[in-house]
């Protein structure tokens, strides 16, 4: 399957990151947002994120221009009708995804494959809401999509072979290695990662060590690129809590029960890098001192 133009629903961080990667690989992209204001903001944010990549020498000024020229933002779902495949990247909420799926199946011709980007939700359930489950397939991209080499490709109960093959083809077109996954809550990556980061939070909550020390131990001890708490801060603690709650609800095992410290930080609005404070204090992308002490909490 040759991809010439892809549709992306949602211009949030994941939507923009996928759009960046798709355009960098020479494929045109149409990104759907909910309103002209959101369209404007998403376009500006993509420009800013390309500027950051330029400052890190990852792309050149002419590559930035070429990428921007391939990405079109719109608030009109009809603009997705002539794309080869659509990836929805709306918020990790089952009802929101179901609704988008219904709209997409109505807006795009019936032979068009629709990818839902989710890290934990049931593809089967999302697909069922569309009324055309055969054309829906799951892909779990990792953020930032330009940097992460892997993607989980998830088959729902009714996903057709053709839709699954299209997802594999898309992964290849985006230079991604594929981990094929049978649908099960959390797939591979999220399910393995969540109990691990949750345990690190317990270590902090129980006063065993401060966040910086926990991360340093794991980073250096096991040669990880970053420690579990820094990872959570970067992803967003509200997002991590959402995943944990989903696993806890779906699987009902104590190992998935969210750490109380995580709940407390989210309730206080300390969501990590995006709010300026989580386990660390964040200042213009640079980590300062630990924000969460050991025994004090």
């Amino acid at each position: 399957m040759e991809f010439r133009k892809l549709g992306i629903v949602g211009g949030g961080s994941m939507g923009k990151s996928i759009a960046h990667k798709v355009a960098a690989n020479g494929i045109d992209v149409v990104v759907l947002e909910v309103s002209p204001e959101h369209v404007k903001r998403a376009r500006e944010e993509l420009g800013e994120s390309l500027d950051r990549e330029l400052a890190k020498w990852g792309i050149t000024a002419s590559e930035k221009k070429a990428i921007l020229s391939r990405v079109r933002f719109t608030a009109d779902i009809a603009d997705l009708a002539d794309t080869d495949l659509v990836i929805e990247t709306v918020t990790e909420d089952l009802d929101a995804k179901k609704q988008v799926m219904r709209q997409l199946c109505a807006a795009c011709p019936p032979d068009r494959v629709i990818v839902t980007n989710t890290s934990t939700l049931s593809i089967t359930e999302i697909a069922a809401a569309s009324g055309q489950p055969a054309r829906v397939v799951g892909m779990h991209f990792m953020y930032p999509v330009t940097r992460s080499p892997i993607v989980e490709v998830v088959r729902g109960a009714e996903t057709s072979d053709a839709s699954f093959a299209a997802a594999l083809e898309l992964a290849r077109a985006l230079d991604k290695q594929v981990v094929e996954v049978f649908e099960y809550p959390g797939y591979v990556v999220t399910r393995t990662m969540m109990p691990f980061v949750n345990e690190a939070m317990h270590v902090v909550m129980e006063g065993v060590a401060r966040p910086g020390e926990v991360d340093r131990a794991i980073r250096l001890g096991y040669d990880f690129k970053m420690g579990p708490l820094e990872y959570c801060d970067r992803v967003g603690l509200d997002k991590v809590l959402g995943w944990m709650e989903h696993l806890w609800r779906e699987l009902g095992e104590f190992k998935y029960r969210p750490c109380p410290l995580l709940r407390k930080l989210v309730r206080a609005g300390h969501l990590g890098r995006k709010s300026g404070r989580g386990f660390y204090r964040w200042d213009a992308d640079k980590r300062g001192a630990d924000a969460v002490g050991g025994p004090v909490l």
Binding site: E53, K56, W57, G58, I59, T60, T146, R147
Partner: peptide, 10 residues
């Protein structure tokens, strides 16, 4: 500079 392999290559 905390660069990835791709950024360093570029």
């Amino acid at each position: 500079e905390d660069l990835s392999e791709q950024q360093a290559t570029a």
